[in-house]
Amino acid sequence: MATGTTAAPARHALPFPVAMARPAALVERNLRAARHYWLTFVSGFFEPVFYLFAMGVGIGALVGSVDVDGREIPYAVFVAPAMMATSAMNGAVYDSTGNVFYKLKHSKLYRSVLSTPLRPWDIAAGEISWALLRGLIYSAAFLLVAAVAGFVPSWWALLAIPACTLIGLGFAAVGMAATTYMRSWNDMDYVQLAILPMFLFSATFYPLATYPPALQWVVQATPLYHGVDLVRGLMMGDLHVGLLVHVGYLAVFSALGLWATTRRIGTLLLT
């Protein structure tokens, strides 16, 4: 009666290497669940778009243009990349905190999953892949809207999509690790405590130069700053070596998050 002892690498597997066959099962699970919650899925696209128009059009009319390294940039062009990057962060954090907490504590999904051949790493990889896949769709849609609205001056902007995936990876991994420490829904407020200041102060709404020099260092230490500046550089076609620093920062940030998440899920559920 016994069937295959290990997860047979799924035949269809195209976008995933063999090591991702088991995480892919969890992605498939989330995809199925999302079909029953499609309205939520769709609504996720609108939030950054609302912000884009409120900031770009509404605030843009008040600000006029922004001085970036001596160049005058229309405010909408300045703020659109920030909205794209913060939305990548928000989406990833939302998926990896609230949704994961629900599965960890309420639906006990991971407990069931761990009684199958999936391991803690598979769960972390599966959930994060899902968050990234979802984020990818949102990023692409956002970019399209921003481009149609005339806020995107460069074709390099296409690279902003993978850049947002990297931002998402970092925040999803760290967010999921943080979720394993959450005790109740009330703790979601502490997540806000981390997210909101970054959203407001990571050179999102005004250039870094607006801050006094001491504060500039603080801003530059945050992961979202690196995300925003990376996406902004790409969307404005302003390529320079500094962008690689941003990529490096976000890569390390992601690796730390992945390592912590895998460890924590194991200690939390395999007791």
Partner: peptide, 25 residues
């Protein structure tokens, strides 16, 4: 405790669980 996947329908619970074992569709 049953710990069924409440975000999925009855049949889907079986389909998805089987996929965790690496079974083909």
């Amino acid at each position: 405790t049953d710990a069924l996947d409440e975000e999925l329908r009855v049949r889907e619970n079986l389909l998805v669980y089987g996929r965790y074992f690496g079974l083909t569709r």
